[in-house]
Measured scan of single mutants.
Amino acid sequence: MTEYKLVVVGAGGVGKSALTIQLIQNHFVDEYDPTIEDSYRKQVVIDGETCLLDILDTAGQEEYSAMRDQYMRTGEGFLCVFAINNTKSFEDIHHYREQIKRVKDSEDVPMVLVGNKCDLPSRTVDTKQAQDLARSYGIPFIETSAKTRQGVDDAFYTLVREIRKHKEKMSKDGKKKKKKSKTKCVIM
């Protein structure tokens, strides 16, 4: 069974824990209790493949930012979460993405942009803004509501699919490099 290491990042209060708990335990946590770091595991079937999701729910508070490099190193894919009623959390996505790329030393890291709290009427981040940002990053965008469960499975499952595509691409690139290195030079 394939294991996928997913990391949920975003500013404090955007609903990272609520999304994760909704996926794992099928219930909505409405009281806000700032996370330092929590880890969850769940076995699911995605596109006919049974897999184990190892999900790291991270601290959004700035005082825990020193811990970010460590979990970013171990993560295979990242859910970059903002709240649709919090423009600052949307603007912060850029910083999370840049930090992930720096730590992973790669421009090509599996990510999904997630606009959470889409059940709320007080939207300050337009869907088109988020779609445009995701398009500019070359990553999928999904709106979710941890409260109603809308888009929750889709967000995590899409990230797994992005990781699969990335692994497939990397193995193809690896095979191309191996083929090239088999060419021999004969000096007579």
Rank of each mutant, 00 (worst) to 15 (best):
V29C: 08
E49S: 11
C51D: 10
V14C: 12
K42M: 09
G60L: 02
Q43F: 07
D30T: 09
A11F: 14
S17P: 00
T35N: 01
L56R: 14
L23N: 15
E3G: 14
D33G: 02
I24Q: 11
D47I: 04
L52E: 15
C51P: 13
D30W: 07
A11V: 13
E63T: 06
I46C: 11
F28R: 03
D33I: 03
V7K: 07
D47K: 10
G13M: 12
G48V: 07
G13C: 12
G13F: 12
T58M: 01
D38M: 00
T20A: 09
Q43R: 13
L19T: 14
L56G: 07
T50W: 07
G48W: 06
V44Q: 13
G12I: 06
I36C: 02
E31T: 06
L23I: 09
F28L: 05
S39P: 03
T2A: 13
S39Y: 05
P34S: 04
G10C: 05
D54I: 07
T35Y: 00
V44H: 11
L23T: 14
E62S: 08
Y64K: 04
V9T: 06
A11W: 09
S17C: 04
P34H: 02
I24S: 06
G12Y: 09
G10L: 01
D54A: 11
G13A: 13
R41C: 08
G12H: 08
L53T: 10
E63K: 05
E49A: 11
G13P: 14
G12W: 09
Q25M: 15
L19I: 12
V14H: 10
G60K: 02
C51M: 13
E3K: 14
I24N: 07
D33M: 02
L52R: 15
L56Y: 07
V45R: 13
D54C: 09
D54M: 07
T50C: 10
K16H: 01
T20I: 07
K5H: 07
Y32D: 04
A11E: 11
K42L: 09
E3R: 13
Q43C: 09
G60T: 03
I55V: 12
G15S: 01
T58H: 00
V29A: 07
L53M: 10
R41L: 09
K5G: 08
D47Q: 09
D47F: 06
C51N: 12
Y40W: 03
A11C: 13
I46V: 13
V9Q: 04
G10Q: 02
I55Q: 04
I55D: 02
Y4F: 14
G48F: 06
G48T: 10
G12M: 11
Y64Q: 05
D57C: 00
S39K: 09
L56E: 14
E63L: 04
T50I: 10
Y40P: 01
Y32W: 09
Q43T: 12
D30M: 08
H27M: 15
G13D: 14
A59W: 01
V7I: 09
G48R: 10
L23F: 13
L23G: 12
C51S: 11
I36R: 01
K5F: 03
D57Q: 00
D30V: 09
S39T: 11
E63N: 07
G10R: 03
G13I: 10
I21K: 01
V8D: 01
V9D: 06
V9M: 12
L52N: 14
